[in-house]
Every structure is written in structure tokens, then in C-alpha cells.
Computed example of a mutant assay.
Amino acid sequence: MTDASPSDGRDVAEFEQIDWDDHGGWRRWITAERVVLLVGLFAVADLFNYHRNTGDLSLVMQWKVGWIDWLLLIALVVILAYMIVPLAKRPQRVRRLLGHLRGRWATVLALVILATVVAVGGWATVRDWAPLNTLVNGDSFDTLQPPVGATIDTLYPSGCAGPTSNSGGICQGSWTYPLGTNDQAYRMTDLLVMGTRPLFYIVLITLGLVMPLATVVGVVAGYRGGLVDDILMGYVDIQLTMPALAVYLFAYMFLLNTKIMFIVVFGFLSWGGIARIVRSETLQRREEGYVLSARAIGAPQGYILRRHIFPNVTNSVVPATFHLIAIIVLTEAGLGFLGYKPFDRSWGQTIGQGLYRAPPLDAWWVAALPALALAATIVSCKLIGDGFRDILDPRGKA
């Protein structure tokens, strides 16, 4: 049998002493993702500077930007650079992902629902769209019009847009208002559309900023260990001991109640759990054979993290992120229900008004329709997280 030990050590030396600085050259530093990120951030900075100088800026249609919109634009740049561009560069990944989704109808339906809600929220945002009161004959409001297929006693509405029953004084729903109106004469279709705006901000900012932040902190802490791990996880422990709800209520009472305050408090004070999950996954991955082999041949830490660690923690990051999105959406709805109104005309606010300002048993649609929309969104987030956990798990078959 041939001796496996080299006689002069030359082969081993050549294998272990790879010049990683020359491996790929400048192309290793100038990537499409980094170019898109830098160009996008410069564009956002230029728009921000223009906005400060002019004092008024409509980015698209009637979209009047505020502080939360600049945060949203940065999140969109990150999503474009590190989610859209990698998929465009490697279409085989898209085909493989679509292949994994085949047969997973629950995950596909959940993706369609969430994408539709976010798209509608984006449309309502760029149009600066708001629901309007409706009038009958120019002088009376269409209050509590029932949806198609439902009825209500004419004691409640001041006018009936649909047919009425003379014997019982019953107002029937009509296609004038397919989903009816509330006691303030707002169309329920308008209120449902308006309620998607918070989800537009929550989903995109969480995916574009909160998830990358938590992932980077978790991976760096788990891979470097030592003092770096102690400092980062010490901060995470402090963050986890600060209830985001208490911080938000303090800010609501003594500072201000704005959309940006809600996102900062519940988005950027709630990622500690994701960071801990990623750190735990990284601690396992850094001891795998392929990582040890890459370190043995002198691969830089950035290369190991980018090629071996990050791809193998996504199956933990994705479900945790969508779980966080569901929690933030529910929190916003709960605050709106209680009257704090972090976002105007959210589904939670509409549900609260339907239960407290309208007769809830007679005008059931005022609270039921936004509640169904909220429930469908939350369930969709959970199904997407669970589905992609199985699809992205490298240890199993999707």
C-alpha cells in the first residue's frame, strides 16, 4: 500500500498556503450586492439632502415622506442588494426554491396573502390614500350600511343604500357598499385598505433592517466567541430585560407617539431572541468539518462567514423573523384597539371602534372584517416561517 505521508511535504504546503488575497483579486471585494447597496444608500442620502433643502418631497405620486419613510427606503435598499440581487445572479436558486414550494399549497397561499397585503399597503402609502366619509343626497351620512347578503334594522342607519323591507324596517346590503360601512360612514373596503399600511412598514423594515442586524450580531458573537461574544450577548441580555411595551408607553406619555417611535421600540428592541437563536446555530456550525477544513487551509473569516456560516443559519433566521413580524403586527393592532393609535386607521383601531362605538351584534361586520384580515395575516406569517424552515434546512429534504 502506498504511504499516504508525502516525502518532502511540498504537496501539503501548497495546499495549506493558499494566497487568499489573490484568490479572486478585486472581484472578491467588488460584488453586485455591494455596488447596489452603496448606490442605493447614496441615492437615499441624496434624496434626504434634497428633502431637507426644499422641505417638501413627493417620491412617488403623493407619497410625503417622514422619518419612518427614510428608514423604509434604507430597508428596501438592503432587501434589493442582499435578497433580490443574489436571486437574480443565480436563477437556479429561484428554480430550486420554486421546486421546493411545489406541493406546499399552504405556504404558497400564505405567501400570496402576505404579498398582497404588503402590495396594497405600498399602494396606499405612495398614494397618500385615506378613507373618506360618504354622503346620501349631500346631507346625511351612510352610517352602518350592511354588506352584501347582510341586513340591519333601519333604526341604526340614517339612510339605506339598498332595498328595505317595509314590514320589518330592515335595510339590506347592496353593491354600492359591498362590505358595508361603519358608524362613521367610512366604507369598510377603505378601512381594510388603510389597515394594510402598518404591515407595509413592519414587514419591510423587519426584513430589511431588523433581521440583518440580528443575524450579524448572532453570527459574529457565535463565531468569534470570547470577549466579543460576552459584549454582544451582554447587550442582548440587557435588551431582553427591557419590555418593549413599557418603553413604548413611557415614550407615548412623555415624548411623542409617532410611527417611527413604534418601529424603533418594537422593531429594534425585539431582535435579541433572533440573535440568540443565530448564535446558538453558529456555535454548532463553526465546529463542522467543512468549517474546520476552510480554517485549516487559511480561508479568511469573512469568506467562512459568507460561504459557510450565513447560508446554514437561514433555516433558523427565517421562521424566527416571520414570528417576530407576527408579534409586531399583533402588538400594533392591540395598541390601536386600546386607542394608542401608532398608525392611523389600523385594523386594531377599526376593531375597537366596531366593538365600542357601533352595536357589535347588529353591525358585526365592522369588527369582524378587519379581525379576519388580521387573523389571515398572522396565520400567513406563521405558515411562511414554518414552510421556509423546512425548505432551507440543509440537514433535511424539503
Rank of each mutant, 00 (worst) to 15 (best):
residue 178 P to Y: 09
residue 197 R to I: 15
residue 197 R to C: 05
residue 157 P to L: 04
residue 185 A to P: 06
residue 140 S to Y: 12
residue 170 I to S: 08
residue 202 I to A: 12
residue 205 I to E: 05
residue 155 L to N: 13
residue 210 V to F: 09
residue 143 T to G: 02
residue 203 V to A: 15
residue 172 Q to S: 11
residue 186 Y to T: 07
residue 203 V to Q: 14
residue 182 N to G: 03
residue 204 L to E: 02
residue 186 Y to N: 04
residue 207 L to V: 14
residue 148 V to G: 02
residue 182 N to H: 00
residue 171 C to M: 04
residue 204 L to A: 02
residue 218 G to R: 11
residue 132 L to W: 08
residue 167 S to N: 11
residue 192 L to Y: 11
residue 147 P to L: 03
residue 147 P to Q: 02
residue 145 Q to A: 12
residue 159 G to L: 04
residue 167 S to W: 03
residue 183 D to Y: 02
residue 182 N to A: 00
residue 185 A to H: 07
residue 135 L to P: 05
residue 184 Q to L: 14
residue 189 T to S: 15
residue 217 V to K: 01
residue 153 D to R: 09
residue 150 A to T: 12
residue 194 M to I: 01
residue 189 T to V: 15
residue 149 G to W: 11
residue 134 T to G: 08
residue 191 L to R: 11
residue 173 G to W: 03
residue 198 P to R: 07
residue 166 N to A: 15
residue 175 W to H: 14
residue 136 V to L: 12
residue 198 P to Q: 09
residue 214 A to F: 08
residue 131 P to Y: 07
residue 146 P to A: 05
residue 211 M to I: 09
residue 193 V to Y: 05
residue 208 G to L: 10
residue 135 L to F: 14
residue 212 P to N: 08
residue 203 V to Y: 15
residue 157 P to Y: 05
residue 131 P to H: 06
residue 210 V to P: 12
residue 191 L to W: 07
residue 134 T to C: 00
residue 176 T to W: 00
residue 212 P to R: 08
residue 138 G to T: 10
residue 196 T to Y: 08
residue 195 G to M: 01
residue 137 N to C: 00
residue 181 T to P: 07
residue 154 T to P: 00
residue 199 L to Y: 10
